[in-house]
Amino acid sequence: MTSKIEKEDLSRRNFVFGSIAAAGLTVAPGVMLYQTANARDLSKPVSSKVRWGMLIDTTKDVDWNKCVEACVKEHGLGNEEHSRADQRTQYIRVVDVKNKTTGYSMSLPVMCQHCEKPPCVDVCPTGASMKREDGIVLVDRHRCIGCRYCMMACPYKARSFVHETLTDQKTTTPRGKGCVESCNMCVNRVDNGQLPACVEVSEGAIVFGDLNDPESDISRLLAKHGGKQIRADLKLNPGVQYQGI
């Protein structure tokens, strides 16, 4: 699928204005999930015209653990040797939710919600915790001093602290002892025109795309069916939204 995207070779301008979205939709069935995935020009700064987001349909019968596994593989997680279970890094986790009164239950994947107004970015003393112009929230591992204030501030418990020396990290996901980390929406893949790892294995239950582009699939789905945010009361306007919660 990646090679197909590369072959498309559309200009960034087209990408920004979403014309590929329409093209992609008409080219082949099934390509819709990948419509926005085009490599950006890495010599230029990230544009705020794009806001990457995810729409997660919890009503679909999907094994969310596959998303967790894909994330672990993509970012080289799970290589701690000494850390206790409550100290190990998790970028994405499956949360089981049950209504005690009605008995209704469901599961959903929860990761960094890539807020428009991220509390983790507000509280970070050094600016290591940052939001890119395209809405992706991530940690600059060269600037993080490991104060963990962002972990105190995040209302989604989305962040982990590296509790030990790590070896054999992926070059695309630099990780190191004493720094905080979290889901970065697979920024390395997105910049290369690929989908985030969890989206790729989600069997269509997670739609990734540009929330600023009204023609994108994610925007169309949100316009048609709506989407819900976890802790919407906090008015952080997360980029990750849900259906069926």
Binding site: D86, Q90, R93, V94, V95, D96, V97, K98, N99, K100, V110, P155, Y156, K157, I230, R231, I245
Partner: peptide
Amino acid sequence: MFPGMEVSSSFYD
């Protein structure tokens, strides 16, 4: 995160 709900996960939610 989910007021009024019973919540559990591998991340100690």
